[in-house]
Amino acid sequence: MSRTTATALPRPPLAPDLTDREVHAHELMDDPGCDLDTLRRTYALFRPVNRVVAGWRHVYVRQLRPLLSRTRPTTMLDVGSGGGDVPRAIARWAAQDRLRLDITAVDPDERAHAYASALPPLRGLTFRRALSTDLVAAGDRFDLVTSNHVLHHLDGAGLTTLLADSEALARRLVVHNDIARGTLAYGAFRAATIPLGRRSFIHHDGALSVRRSYQAAELRSAVLAAGADTRWRVTTTVPFRVILHWSPGRDGTPRA
């Protein structure tokens, strides 16, 4: 079994061709044999990095919070939750606003699940090791479905599955939030994370994530090619974000 150590991390290219998505390279942290200490440091760094780049506070205020209630519980599923920083942030914001929100955060990677589950518990937040397809098979439903930085990991079949699962699981709203590929996004992230490159996978894997990510027009085409429901919408936000949204019909049915 290979070991990717903290002392032998490759550097991301300085000026890659970003014309097309880089779909064949894989992130170091996805290697089952990667160095576990480096992986844990990477999970720990997700919180400050995502606070700067992912824009979830804006998503929470503009899209999620208006659907929450102080008297009626709302359920949310976070898919591919990784180190758990995004669902933890949303759980804290809802608690600060005195809103009732029960979050289930799922990830199939046993290492991610172990890390997230070992953090101090938050009321209303549960971590499970599972795929979205497992929840569909179990007949589970949630008011809200979210994901952070999942879309760029998926090939065509994976995207088709995620969209179908999201439609089956969500009663009210889906928000898949990801990076928008671009020269400025790549250059800014690569430069800002150089100090993190020796003791975590953030510098290498984050830069690769930009290279793997969609531009808005590409994501619209991919959703169309997936044969997904026509209610899917792609929007962009600053800085360098692409967001895929879906909500059911007014009667609660997923399709017209």
Results as ranks from 00 to 15, higher is better:
residue 1 M to E: 14
residue 2 S to I: 13
residue 2 S to E: 13
residue 3 R to G: 08
residue 9 L to F: 02
residue 9 L to M: 07
residue 10 P to G: 03
residue 11 R to C: 08
residue 12 P to S: 09
residue 14 L to C: 03
residue 19 T to Y: 11
residue 19 T to I: 09
residue 20 D to H: 14
residue 21 R to L: 04
residue 25 A to P: 01
residue 27 E to K: 10
residue 27 E to A: 07
residue 29 M to G: 03
residue 30 D to E: 05
residue 33 G to N: 00
residue 33 G to H: 04
residue 36 L to T: 11
residue 38 T to C: 11
residue 45 L to C: 14
residue 45 L to Q: 10
residue 47 R to L: 03
residue 49 V to E: 11
residue 51 R to Y: 08
residue 54 A to H: 07
residue 56 W to K: 03
residue 60 Y to C: 01
residue 61 V to M: 04
residue 63 Q to I: 03
residue 64 L to W: 00
residue 65 R to E: 10
residue 68 L to P: 12
residue 70 R to Y: 01
residue 79 V to G: 11
residue 81 S to M: 00
residue 82 G to R: 02
residue 83 G to A: 09
residue 83 G to P: 07
residue 84 G to Q: 00
residue 86 V to W: 07
residue 90 I to C: 00
residue 95 A to Q: 12
residue 96 Q to L: 02
residue 96 Q to C: 11
residue 100 R to D: 07
residue 100 R to E: 11
residue 102 D to H: 11
residue 107 D to R: 12
residue 108 P to F: 10
residue 111 R to A: 14
residue 112 A to C: 07
residue 115 Y to M: 05
residue 118 A to P: 01
residue 120 P to M: 13
residue 123 R to W: 03
residue 125 L to G: 13
residue 125 L to M: 09
residue 129 R to S: 05
residue 129 R to N: 08
residue 133 T to W: 05
residue 138 A to Q: 15
residue 139 G to T: 11
residue 139 G to I: 04
residue 145 V to Q: 00
residue 145 V to H: 04
residue 146 T to L: 10
residue 149 H to Q: 11
residue 149 H to N: 15
residue 153 H to L: 05
residue 154 L to H: 05
residue 156 G to P: 01
residue 161 T to N: 08
residue 162 L to C: 03
residue 163 L to K: 10
residue 164 A to I: 06
residue 165 D to W: 02
residue 168 A to C: 10
residue 173 L to F: 10
residue 175 V to I: 14
residue 175 V to C: 13
residue 176 H to Q: 09
residue 179 I to T: 15
residue 179 I to K: 08
residue 180 A to L: 15
residue 180 A to C: 08
residue 181 R to Q: 07
residue 182 G to P: 01
residue 183 T to E: 11
residue 184 L to V: 15
residue 187 G to I: 07
residue 191 A to D: 05
residue 192 A to H: 00
residue 192 A to M: 08
residue 196 L to D: 04
residue 198 R to Y: 10
residue 199 R to V: 06
residue 200 S to W: 01
residue 205 D to P: 02
residue 207 A to Y: 02
residue 207 A to P: 00
residue 212 R to F: 07
residue 215 Q to Y: 04
residue 216 A to T: 07
residue 218 E to N: 00
residue 220 R to V: 12
residue 228 A to E: 15
residue 229 D to T: 14
residue 232 W to Y: 10
residue 233 R to Q: 08
residue 235 T to G: 12
residue 243 I to N: 15
residue 247 S to V: 11
residue 251 D to M: 02
residue 251 D to C: 03
residue 252 G to N: 04
